[in-house]
Structure formats: structure tokens, C-alpha cells
């Protein structure tokens, strides 16, 4: 009665599965028993794992959570511990940087390496929103890569600026002084404003109207030299920019300079001493100084 679909391979003497593909048959060799037991052992290991470690996700009070396992192991705790250990190590170096005068940090290659890395990170967290991710700046926010510094580009001066800010009223030692609103406050009539702007443009040989520029020289001498100097090269103690160079914080075209003289300028930078530690501010100063323009 029973029709056996059994086929034996002549060459090997092993039964085949009975399937045939274009004359090719598959030998039906049995799996070794230990292989099966290894499989069971793997299932057992998985079960033990479920009991010991976090495994199954489920919804509790509408929030996804998971079983914790009897060992209550949380990988985040390990990460937290490792981060705390790293922070403790950093704190030690930061303390050393805090204690060391800034010029000496710059000459200590080991501290400098840490300071530059820390400064770069702190810059990204605190300064980049205004000065740009790599301190390239934008209109009204100084490019810190160049060699033009309103308030001085030495390590000490940069540290001072970051610590106390610019026109930051809450800080007594902040950089004060600002560009007056010559037209808006009626200090100069419109034609004199135009003349003095032509004179300023003549520093870089860009004046449109020679006569106006000549007239402007007198206006400049009467109103501007106190801060910008007789030669227009500025004064970093007063935050007065050099008007003869190629760098303009707000723009060096005639209309922008007209706007600047008419309405004044008074950009603000926060005093960071209330938010950042002395060590971090030192790191920032060293980083900014290293961008290529430091004096």
C-alpha cells in the first residue's frame, strides 16, 4: 500500500530528500545531535539574558519602557560614570590653567593643547551664535580670524574683553565708549556728515568728491580725532576702529559709513565672567588668539 518516495544516491549511498532539480538531488544527511543541543543551549542563554538584563519593551502608562532585569543594569549609568571620570580629569587640567598666567599657558605645549581644545568647544557652545561657528563673524559681529582688533588683540586684552564684555551695563569694568549719533542727535548737519564720510573714504583712496573730502578733513579734526586719531588709525583703548585698513565691522561702502556716522554704533557683547569660569575664559582667549590674528 505505502508508496515510499525514497531515493538513494548511488555514489554516496546516502538517502536523498526526494526532491529533484534538473537531475540534481539533495543528500539527506542527518544533523549531528550536538548541533541540536547547541541550539537549545543558545535558547537557554537567551532566557537567562532576559532575566538578568534589560530586554522586553512594553507600554507603561502610555510610555514605552522595558523590563530591567534582576541585575538592574543601565548602560546610561556606565556612560555617566565614564563621563564623570573624564570631567574629573579635565577639571584637574582646568584648575592648572586657571592658576597659570595666560602667557605661561601659551608657552606650555601640554596645557596649550588642552586649552585650545577646550576653547574650541566653549566657543561652539557660547560664542558661535554671534561670531559664527569658526569665528568668521558677520555684519556687526567681529571676525576673530583677522588681525584687526577693536579692543586689542593681545592675550590679556582678549581675556579682558571676554571677561567683562563690551557695553555690558551690569559689569563695572566693561568696555564703555561708543560711536555718537552725529546726525540723529544734531551734532553735525547733513552736508558735514557727507563731507566727513568722503574724507574717511579718502584714507583708502576711495573718495568720490575730492572737494568734499578736503572739507571733511576739518570736520574729522573737530569731531573724530579724539577717538579715531588724527591719522584715522583708531585707538584700541577706546574701541575706535582703524578707518584706514581693509576691514569694516559694519561695511566699508559709502552708504554704510553714512549710516554709521549718522546713527552711531554701539554693539554689545556680554560679560562672560558671570557665566563661565576663569579657566574657560582663559581657554577661549587662547583659542581666539590662535585663530591667526592674535597680537
Amino acid at each position: 500500500m505505502t508508496q515510499e518516495h525514497k531515493h538513494r544516491d548511488d555514489l554516496s549511498g546516502v538517502d536523498t530528500t526526494g526532491h529533484e532539480w534538473d537531475g540534481i538531488r539533495e543528500l539527506n544527511n542527518p544533523l549531528p545531535k550536538w548541533w541540536l543541543y547547541t541550539f537549545y543551549a543558545c535558547i537557554l542563554v537567551a532566557a537567562v539574558y532576559w532575566v538578568l538584563w534589560p530586554t522586553w519593551p512594553y507600554i507603561h502608562d502610555g510610555v514605552w519602557t522595558h523590563t530591567n532585569g534582576v541585575l538592574s543594569y543601565v548602560q546610561r549609568d556606565t556612560v555617566r560614570q565614564e563621563l564623570a571620570a573624564v570631567a574629573a580629569g579635565r577639571q584637574q587640567t582646568l584648575d592648572q590653567i586657571t592658576k597659570t598666567p595666560i602667557e605661561n599657558v601659551a608657552s606650555n605645549s601640554q596645557l596649550m593643547e588642552v586649552a585650545l581644545a577646550g576653547g574650541k568647544a566653549a566657543f561652539g557652545d557660547n560664542c558661535a551664535p554671534c561670531h559664527g561657528s569658526n569665528a568668521a563673524g558677520s555684519k556687526g559681529f567681529a571676525n576673530l580670524n583677522d588681525d584687526d582688533w577693536l579692543w586689542g588683540g593681545s592675550l590679556k586684552e582678549i581675556q579682558q574683553t571676554i571677561t567683562h564684555g563690551i557695553r555690558w551695563e551690569a559689569d563695572d569694568e566693561t568696555h564703555q565708549n561708543q560711536m555718537p549719533r552725529f546726525l540723529k542727535d544734531g551734532m553735525l548737519p547733513r552736508d558735514q556728515v557727507n563731507d566727513v564720510v568722503e574724507y574717511v573714504l579718502s584714507f583708502s583712496g576711495r573718495e568720490d568728491d575730492k572737494a568734499a573730502a578736503t572739507r571733511g578733513a576739518a570736520v574729522f579734526a573737530a569731531n573724530c580725532v579724539t577717538c579715531h586719531g588724527a591719522d584715522g588709525k583708531g585707538n584700541k583703548d577706546l574701541g575706535a576702529p582703524n578707518l584706514t585698513d581693509a576691514i569694516w565691522l559694519y561695511g566699508g561702502d559709502k552708504n554704510t559709513i553714512l549710516e554709521t556716522v549718522s546713527n552711531g554704533r554701539g554693539g554689545v557683547m556680554p560679560a562672560w565672567n558671570s557665566r563661565l569660569s576663569e579657566g574657560t575664559i582663559k581657554e577661549l582667549a587662547l583659542y581666539v588668539h590662535s585663530l591667526g590674528g592674535g597680537k
Binding site: G132, N134, N143, D245, A246, G293
Partner: peptide, 11 residues
């Protein structure tokens, strides 16, 4: 790459 180039005060 950021900044690609920087203008210095002497141009």
C-alpha cells in the same frame, strides 16, 4: 573650510 579665507587689515 570655515572660513575659506580671511581678509587682513592690510588687504
Amino acid at each position: 573650510r570655515n572660513p575659506l579665507f580671511v581678509t587682513l587689515s592690510d588687504g
